[in-house]
Structure formats: C-alpha cells, structure tokens
Design a protein around this nucleic acid. Structure first.
Lengths: 159, 159
DNA sequence: CACTACTAGGTTGCGTACAATATAACAGAA
DNA sequence: TTCTGTTATATTGTACGCAACCTAGTAGTG
C-alpha cells in the first residue's frame, strides 16, 4: 500500500482521537450544570425520545457494552433521573424509565445543542453547514467500514 | 439557529464519539501484540521520531494533560520501553528517552498502519483516498474551531 | 422432569481522561 | 537574600470503556 495512504490513515485516526476529546471538553461545562456527563447525556436523549428502554436497547443504541452502561445507569438512578426494574415477563431484562425529575431535565437541556453548534460553526454558516453535512456522510462510511472489518475479524476467530 | 444545524451538530458529535471507539477497537488487537495501548502507541511514535522529549512536550504533542501522561509514562517505564530522568539543568523537567527495547519495538510496529489503513480503505482506494484527504481537512477545521472556542471561554472566565 | 445451551445484566480489573490539588524547583523583584 | 509568583510534573478522585468473567433466568431437548 502506498506510503501516503498509510500516513493519511494514521493522521485521520489521531485527529478523530483528538477531536473526540475536544468535543467532550466543549460539552463538559454545559452538561456540568445539568449534573450529567456526555455518555449520560446521550442516554437521557434516548430516554427523552423513547420514554423507556431496556439496558440492551440502550447499549445497542449508543454502541456501549454492559460494563460501561450498568454503572452509568446506576449513577443516573442515584441522581434521581431514572428508575430500573426487572420485567415480570422476563426477569433477566431490566427496563429503564424516566422519573419526573428526569423528564423535567429535558427542558434545561434544550440550549445544549445550540451552544455546541455555535462552537462548531463560525461566520459562514451555510458553507460550513454543507461541509459538515459532507463530514457526517464520510464519518458514517468510515464507521460502517470499520464495523464491517471488525465483524470479519471476529467471525474469523470463531472459524 | 436553524433546527437542522442543531441536529447536524449533534449527529456529528455522536458519530465522532462512536468512530473514536471503533478506531480504538481496530487498533487494539494489533497493539495488544506489542503490549501497548493506543495512547501509549502514539507516545512511542513521538519518541521513535524524536528519540527523546520532556513530559510537557509529550503532553502538548498529544493534547493530553499530566494527569493522563504521568501514569502512562510510568507504565511504559515499567514495561521497559522508556526511561525517565530529571534534567540537571532544571530539576523540574523530566526527560523521557527510549531504551534499547523501546527502540526495537519500532520494527514490530511497522505493520500497524498498514492494518489500520486496510480496515478503513476498501476497493476504490483512489476515490476513498480523496475522500479521506477531504475528511482530514474538515477534522482539522473542526478541531481549530473548537480550540478557539475553548480558549475564548477560558479567557472569559479569567476576566 | 432433568439437562444443556443460551441470553440479559452485572462485576472486576486495568487503563485512560481530566479537574483539582499538591510539591518542588526556578525566576524575578524588593 | 528573602519573598513572591510561576513553572513542570505528580497525585487524587470520579467517570468512562472494555475484556473477561459471573450469575440468574429462560428455552429447548430428550
């Protein structure tokens, strides 16, 4: 493979790594006021939209495993935003629901996207909007690419 | 701000968050064989290029703070890849250097970029190369944008 | 029913990330 | 020289993120 492609791949990875942390740093002061972290915030976003969901659905929606999600939900429960209960129909599955306090938090979170957008967008919003739309598409392609590669690796291990 | 821009920003953040973890998952099996994590790997990349550096230089090159870098370097030292010593000229500064074992590791790491590139690039390498080059530019712009916004926030706090 | 396999979540251990704080060393002013 | 402020790094505490393992509940088979 061409040296340039190897260099490019490395630079992409490093930038994604750096950008992820820079984005978290942008969210942090906003979410601090709500008493949430970013992973907790996107968990709440899921619940604000769907009102409830099982642990498995949350793991799958956010691409997180139970080792991350279980303690995270425990903390959200301790903060009083959600409740957890085992389903009578299947005692293995745990259903997560919003509390009154959790539902009310949505109102306070309404300004978060605006703040983040204003950190990402500068003067020429139309031009930048087009670029970011393009960026979203490429990120999706890269994600799908990597997930496909990972599944191939994993099934190769089994066989 | 337009609702579409708010939605777009959120989707970008979520995808960067997901892509970062998917990339780490792609690196993990490769780096496991070297006995490195991704942050340790990019630390070694810096040292393979520069032979040595201070803790501060490493923090700044990788955009990590000392709370992350200090224990990371301690682990790299425990693995025998680096040594640390305080500079006689300034006892506050710690200089990190490669050991023989650390230098030799570079040879075993040569195939890593190739593997990652092959997970990211599929059939049409030229077309995809162009897209990823574009992606790199947009990531850089987003990074700079966010860093500028952050500096503004921080200096606003001081004043 | 007894046995086996599978599934949904939880727990443990290790390594980041980072805010907040601590500490020692240096640098400049009085 | 002493005091003061700053700098470079380390430490502590909290929260991910994930591999590996554990457990209880369910489902299918004979």
């Amino acid at each position: 493979m061409a040296h340039e492609q190897l260099t490019l791949s490395f630079q992409l990875c490093f930038r994604v790594y750096a950008l992820e942390r820079e984005l978290m740093a942008a969210y942090r002061p906003l979410l601090d006021q709500l008493g949430l972290t970013y992973p907790q915030y996107i968990t709440m976003l899921y619940l604000w939209e769907h009102e409830k969901g099982t642990v498995g659905e949350l793991c799958s929606a956010l691409s997180l495993d139970t080792g991350t999600m279980s303690p995270l939900l425990k903390r959200l429960e301790a903060s009083g935003f959600i409740t957890r209960r085992r389903l009578p129909s299947d005692e293995r599955t745990v259903e997560v629901s919003l509390t009154k306090k959790g539902r009310e938090l949505e109102g306070q979170a309404l300004s978060v996207p605006e703040h983040i957008a204003s950190c990402l967008l500068t003067s020429d919003k139309d031009e930048q909007g087009r670029r970011y739309h393009e960026l979203k598409l490429i990120l999706d392609q890269a994600l799908e690419q990597l997930r496909t590669s990972r599944k191939e690796r994993e099934s190769a291990l089994v066989n």
